[in-house]
Amino acid sequence: MPAKKKRGAQTLVFDKPPVITSWASIAGPKEGQGPWGQDFDWSMEDYLFGEESWEKAENKMLRETVKKALNKRNFDEADAEILMAGDLLNQLVSSNYAARELGIPFLGLYGACSTMAEALLLAAILVDGEFFERVIAAACSHHYTAERQFRFPTEQGVQKTPSSQWTATAAGAVLLEPVGTGPRITAVSIGKVIDMDQKDISDMGSAMAPAAAHTIKTHFNDLNRSSDYYDLIVTGDLGKVGMAITRELFIKDGLQPEPNYSDCGVLLYDDFQEVNAGGSGCGCSACILCGPLLKKMTAGEINKLLFVATGALMSPITSFQGESIPAIAHAVAIEN
């Protein structure tokens, strides 16, 4: 017997689309000065956020975002039934330590920068499947914790290439419930790991673009939708280079990229903010979704959104061993 909710190769459609009843976002100092600074719930004044280390700051960011999303619905931590969250650090420390303080049953997820979509789609499955009634999906990243884990000490004078990206200091969380008011998650597509033999770790966009294009194409094929079905298709953090390549791949696949395609990594910063190709990190797509995008959905400016967070799945160790960069993208359809 074929699965009841599965369509085509990689897509699930929900009978009772879960509702995004509440959401919250925190942005770092640089992100707060970007073009969407006003749309985040909170802009941090400095990178330590009142803590002793960047790692503790990142954990606090996630914790406070989750609390804020619950508080907006007049819930507190005890009301949340399960938390699904992830970050970029080894052993998911930011999420694990945040979950320690929050005391919510917890599943840690690692999808690199695709984590927000991974958390959202799993949360939606759990709500639609009637397992839980209040599920939190969240993700966060911090520029300096990621920089020291993946790249160089922060005070070292290194020249960045134009294709490199700036890991965002940001966090986003959404609360999913079976009923309520708000945008609904109607369908999700689970991505495959795609590797086109890209090895340049200062060019994640080129590594991730094929994964994004593959998931989006599969999503449209599985649901028999045309490319103008959505008001906006937004990829996670491909940056300028990855976005330009994805446009080309769209055209190759017979999809129309303009004008309803954009990328969170390109949106998050202004050009003069010295971020080269744009933003990256779990927090990048998380805060753009939980800030400007969901705000625009409630205002009715966007009614159908395809959120496709993208992740590069390498580690510094595999890179030094000469391995190429595998990438993944998950698509989440959010509709009013």
Binding site: P162, M196, D197, S206, K240, V241, I245, E248, L249
Partner: peptide
């Protein structure tokens, strides 16, 4: 496929 993609990347990527 990989070779074709590499060409596309090299065309698109900004040169330092």
């Amino acid at each position: 496929e990989v070779e074709e993609y590499e060409n596309l990347v090299q065309q698109t990527k900004p040169k330092p």
